[in-house]
């Protein structure tokens, strides 16, 4: 039996179904923006010479992607720590320094992204940010993978236990963590492709962007499909028993479907096809977010029965959150609408 702490005695705030839904929703949001930097930065660096306009657009978008991506990342982490604290904390404490370093590295990457967006050392700064953010992505993948693998904890712990404590310099360099990052990177190329398609069709007068971006979109999707395919074919057999057929099918098929839509967009580049492409790519991310949640819950199933944990019934503060969310959506709607009108004018 791995040394798993007991569930928090305070119990679940509200029934776990809500918590899972919020976690998956947050992770989906996080993926949208995180994909933009994960694939967008390398693409911007590589295409700086050959497609300068696309590169410039991507670099300009990065500060926004970072702001919203980090912000949205809070949500799944919050609900992960509500649902599975006894798995998440040991997994990160075992790799403590690496996990802690995420923050300073992120700070450097963020600064680099701003430097690039303000036109200073554009390529160098973007490259630095790309490398750092890929590393951070791997670090997340390692933390989340280890969270669901308590059976791997003792070995890691014993390699790093001065007097029974943890020195925090071990890294969970497992194949599975790399493959999961690979899956994400594959999807990320598609998300960047969809973003470029949408941007190009919104900025209708921008003929240089059209020339550069339209042929690029299906190429990005093809690269993404390739990466996803390789990582997926290596990863799938290991989770086949942890993921229901229908979800396997959905996650597996959503990527080639979006890929096909990218070629449709290439053939008829206009707002309608760009929107279809974006929706289908959204489907890729949603099905993946759900599948990842199911895998996690199945992997942790043998170690904890969440259904047995008492529910506190935090309905008052839940209502406060829902109220804030509704008001927030209203305010957000007004701000975005105003911004949209003034930018177009």
């Amino acid at each position: 039996m791995p040394p798993i702490p007991k569930p928090d005695p305070l119990g679940m705030p509200i029934p776990i179904g809500y918590l899972f839904a919020l976690k998956v929703f947050g992770f989906f949001l996080h993926m949208v923006f995180m994909n933009l930097w994960l694939a967008g930065l390398p693409v911007a660096v590589i295409l700086a010479r050959t497609r300068p306009h696309v590169s410039e657009r991507l670099i300009a978008a990065m500060p926004f992607a970072m702001a919203f991506g980090i912000n949205a990342g809070i949500v799944p982490l919050l609900f992960l720590q509500t649902l599975y604290p006894q798995f998440f904390y040991p997994a990160t404490i075992l790799q403590a320094w690496f996990w802690f370093l995420v923050i300073p590295l992120l700070l450097i990457a963020y600064t680099a992204v701003y430097l690039a967006a303000f036109g200073r050392w554009r390529i160098l700064a973007s490259l630095a940010a790309a490398i750092l953010l890929t590393w951070i992505g791997f670090q997340f993948s390692a933390a989340m993978t280890l969270t669901a693998r308590p059976d791997h904890w003792p070995t890691l712990f014993r390699s790093a236990a001065p007097a029974g404590g943890v020195h925090g310099w071990t890294l969970y360099l497992e194949r599975e963590a790399l493959l999961r990052l690979g899956l994400m990177a594959g999807m990320a190329f598609g998300t960047v492709g969809a973003f470029l398609a949408l941007l190009t069709e919104i900025r209708q007068g921008d003929s240089r962007l059209q020339e550069e971006a339209r042929p690029l979109v299906p190429i990005l999707f093809t690269i993404g499909l390739g990466i996803f395919g390789i990582a997926g074919s290596l990863y799938a057999p290991t989770v086949a028993d942890r993921l229901p057929r229908i979800l396997q099918l959905l996650t597996g098929a959503s990527v080639p479907i979006a890929w096909a839509a990218a070629w449709l967009y290439r053939a008829r580049p206009r707002p309608a096809t760009a929107i279809i492409l974006t929706i289908l790519q959204g489907g890729v991310l949603v099905s993946n977010a759900i599948a990842r949640q199911v895998v996690q819950a199945t992997e942790l199933g043998p170690w904890v029965d969440l259904g047995k944990i008492p529910v506190r019934g935090e309905w008052g503060s839940f209502a406060m959150f829902v109220g804030a969310l509704l008001i927030g959506i209203g305010v957000l709607g007004w701000m975005l609408r105003t911004a949209w009108i003034r930018v177009r004018a």
Partner: peptide
Amino acid sequence: STSALIHVFVFGWATEWVVFVI
């Protein structure tokens, strides 16, 4: 302690997240 704080304040944090987006 972090787990305790999260279990008591989870929707306070979630509300803070909404505010932060704005």
